[in-house]
């Protein structure tokens, strides 16, 4: 294995160490199954490695990673539509003892965002849970930044009113 390849592999290792937990959280919060979420993350990281081999600019890599994991999650639901569990039954899905906490978190957030229109709930997830900026969200969703902000505002207003009604 030549020196260039070794460099690429160490660069990949750095990205994996830095990003794997964030990517896993991103995938798990949408998929809700550890094995499937990790498969998606693995595929994304290998795509990143292929991009590195094609000498992709490092500055665009960050946005590529975000877009890649988002697309991979969408593809997952296109491939496996039958594996979707209704939210009210999600708590009964058997999970490993070690995953109980993150599964409860998955159910909590999805229940909170369940009443929102899909495009708004996704923006709230990306903003609050995945900690992306409005600029990144706009690029990812292919919408103007102002629209992303506007949808976020409506979503927050809706959540406030829902919580008020609930309480």
């Amino acid at each position: 294995m030549n020196e260039e390849t070794e460099q690429l592999l160490s660069e990949l290792e750095r990205i994996v160490v830095e990003r794997q937990d964030w990517l896993f959280r991103f995938a798990y919060m949408r998929i809700g199954v550890r094995e499937d979420a990790e498969d998606v993350v693995q595929e994304v990281l290998l795509n990143v490695f292929r991009r590195l081999r094609e000498k992709m600019h490092v500055e665009s890599l960050e946005q590529y990673v975000i877009r890649s994991i988002s697309n991979a999650c969408n593809d997952y639901f296109r491939r496996k539509p039958l594996s979707i569990v209704p939210l009210d039954k999600a708590e009964q899905v058997p999970v490993h003892e070690g995953d109980r906490q993150i599964h409860e978190e998955f159910v909590r957030i999805n229940k909170l965002l369940d009443t929102l229109p899909q495009e708004q709930s996704e923006i709230v997830r990306l903003k609050c849970y995945d900690d992306l900026t409005f600029k990144q969200i706009a690029e990812l969703q292919g919408i103007p930044e102002a629209t992303a902000k506007s949808r976020y505002r409506y979503a927050i207003m809706h959540l406030k009113s829902k919580m008020r009604v609930d309480s």
């Binding site: 294995m1 990949l12 896993f24 693995q42 490695f49 849970y129």
Partner: peptide, 27 residues
């Protein structure tokens, strides 16, 4: 309330699997 309330940790084997597959691709 919408922020993560717990830590999400990928499996310890994930990194090794990714690197092994990457090595396989450049072989």
């Amino acid at each position: 309330m919408l922020k993560p309330q717990c830590e999400f940790k990928a499996s310890d084997t994930l990194k090794d699997e990714v690197l092994a597959q990457a090595r396989e691709e450049v072989k």
